[in-house]
Simulated scan of single mutants.
Amino acid sequence: MNKQVARTTSPLADMLEWLDLGAPKARRGVGLAPYLRVEDFVEDGTYVLRAEVPGMDPDKDISVTVQGGMLTISGERREEKKDRNHEEFHYGSFQRSVSLPEGADVDRIEASYTDGVLEVRVPTSSGEKQEATTVPVKRS
C-alpha cells in the first residue's frame, strides 16, 4: 500500500525558496539556500569551525582572516563558461564571519581543507566556557 504524505512548510518558506530559485545570478543565495554553510563546536579546548566549500582551490580561492575577535572566511567561486540546461550552483564572491570565543589564541590558528570542507581550529586558553557573572543593578 502506498501512502502519500503531504509536505508541510510555511507559505513564507515556500515563497523565499521560489524567490531564490528564480533570482538572477547576482542575487542567488538570498532565500533559504545558505551560500556558505558552517558548523562549529569545541573539541578538547579547541574551537573548531567547519565550512562547506566544495570544488574550490584553497590556495587561490579561499582566504581566512582574524581581526578584532572575528574570524572571517571569504573567497570566490569562479564560473566556468559552459552551455547549461539547468543551473543551481552559486558563483561569485562570498564572506562569512563568526565571533571567536573568549581566550582564543589567534597566533596558533590552523586551517586545513579536505574533501571540500574547510576546517579552522582555534586553540583557547581554557577549554571550558566561563560562567556568567551576575551584575547587581543599583537604584539611584
Score class of each variant (00 low, 15 high):
10 S>K: 09
105 D>L: 08
86 H>V: 09
15 M>D: 04
33 A>K: 11
84 R>V: 10
87 E>G: 03
37 R>V: 15
93 S>F: 00
4 Q>L: 11
133 T>W: 05
114 T>P: 06
10 S>P: 01
67 Q>H: 13
93 S>Y: 00
137 V>E: 13
10 S>N: 09
22 G>S: 07
4 Q>R: 12
30 V>L: 12
99 S>Q: 14
113 Y>F: 14
127 G>M: 07
32 L>V: 10
79 E>A: 15
16 L>P: 01
36 L>K: 05
56 M>Y: 03
111 A>V: 07
59 D>N: 15
46 T>K: 13
79 E>P: 08
64 V>G: 05
22 G>A: 07
32 L>Q: 08
44 D>G: 11
94 F>R: 07
27 R>D: 15
54 P>I: 02
69 G>H: 02
82 K>Y: 03
99 S>D: 09
102 E>V: 08
12 L>K: 12
28 R>I: 00
114 T>K: 15
64 V>R: 06
24 P>C: 03
119 E>P: 05
73 I>E: 03
42 V>A: 00
75 G>D: 01
87 E>K: 10
98 V>K: 03
83 D>V: 14
11 P>S: 10
87 E>P: 01
51 A>S: 10
18 W>D: 12
34 P>T: 11
6 A>C: 05
137 V>H: 12
27 R>T: 12
31 G>F: 03
15 M>W: 11
90 H>N: 01
50 R>H: 07
26 A>H: 14
19 L>D: 00
34 P>C: 08
133 T>L: 10
104 A>T: 04
74 S>D: 02
80 E>T: 10
71 L>I: 05
2 N>F: 14
113 Y>K: 09
33 A>M: 07
12 L>H: 10
95 Q>R: 15
81 K>V: 00
80 E>F: 01
36 L>E: 01
140 S>V: 00
